[in-house]
Write a protein that binds this DNA or RNA. Structure first.
Length: 274
DNA sequence: TGGGCTGTTGCAAG
DNA sequence: ACTTGCAACAGCCC
């Protein structure tokens, strides 16, 4: 569900509420979503601490505390972080871990339970491979045309598979990979190393553009995504190709095609993309 | 009804 | 070394 714009939407809200909130108690309703340590150790490290900041890199959220350990969250497919200002409010469906805070309740919910919560050191390397190996954040200044072009040259995979690899660019998922390749006019099946420098420049701008525009609308709710207040994002109507396989291309009217690339459903216009 | 689809990622196997 | 495929899980839709 959540790619960079959705995670960033959640982060922005949490950044407005969490700092200064004291963690009174934690209930692990489904302990296995806590990875890397026992639930007791998780509680011991966080209870009594206060949240200090909400940060993001790629699709990971880092909820910093005033203690030596902070909280790393990955929502994977269906994870949700929900803020409830009313401490007596009923928990949302599929609540898995509940943080009782001084001024409200933070709930980690997850239907498919693929998401994860971890403790990480508040400073230094986290030891979480997927996190430590993240490439440049897709909306950050470190995501440059030069860096992208260099990485593309070194990969023989399909350019879509390349974009989905978080070590190359952090934050792109299946929706925005399809949208960015459509905007850049590049077929998703082409080898990354065959993308020209001009195309790499267009691709960088397209990735940035689709992410920023979606973010300005609160993210894409295709099915499950909800922000930290439980609301849907407004970007779905702006999608050009994702979820539109078989329908006319919004630019030229050609029937959009659907295929599988890197094991993921992929939509593209055979005329506008080449 | 059953099977295949779903926004992610790590690991195993080629 | 690099790349692909599947498992983890539960719900939804044909």
């Amino acid at each position: 569900m959540p790619e960079l714009p959705e995670v960033e939407t959640v982060r922005r809200f949490l950044a407005s509420r969490l700092p200064g909130e004291r963690i009174g108690s934690i209930e692990a309703l489904l302990p296995r979503v806590i990875r890397g340590c026992a639930p007791e150790a998780f509680r011991a490290a966080l209870e009594g601490r206060s949240f200090a900041a909400a940060e993001r890199k790629g699709k990971y959220l880092v909820l910093r505390t005033d203690g030596p350990q902070s909280l790393l969250v990955h929502l994977r497919m269906t994870g949700r972080l929900t803020w409830q200002g009313d401490k007596g409010a009923p928990l949302p469906p599929y609540a898995r871990v509940v943080f009782r805070l001084s001024g409200g309740t933070l709930v980690y919910g997850d239907v498919r339970t693929l998401g994860e919560l971890r403790l990480i050191p508040s400073a230094g390397k986290t030891g979480v491979p997927g996190f430590d190996a993240l490439g440049p954040d897709a909306i950050g200044p470190e995501f440059t045309v030069e860096g992208l072009a260099r990485a593309l040259r070194g990969s023989r995979r399909a350019v879509k598979a390349f974009l989905l690899d978080q070590a190359n660019v952090a934050g792109i998922g299946n929706i925005y990979a399809d949208e960015a390749l459509f905007r850049a006019g590049i077929l998703p099946s082409r080898p990354a190393c065959g993308v020209t420098p001009e195309e790499a420049s267009r691709l960088r701008d397209a990735v940035r553009g689709v992410m920023e525009e979606s973010l300005s609308r609160g993210g894409t709710t295709f099915r499950d995504f909800r922000d930290a207040e439980g609301k849907k994002g407004g970007n779905a109507p702006a999608l050009q190709v994702y979820g539109r396989g078989g329908l006319p291309c919004p630019k030229c009217g050609t029937r959009l095609e659907f295929s599988k690339i890197a094991g993921r459903g992929t939509r593209f216009c055979p005329r506008c993309q080449n």
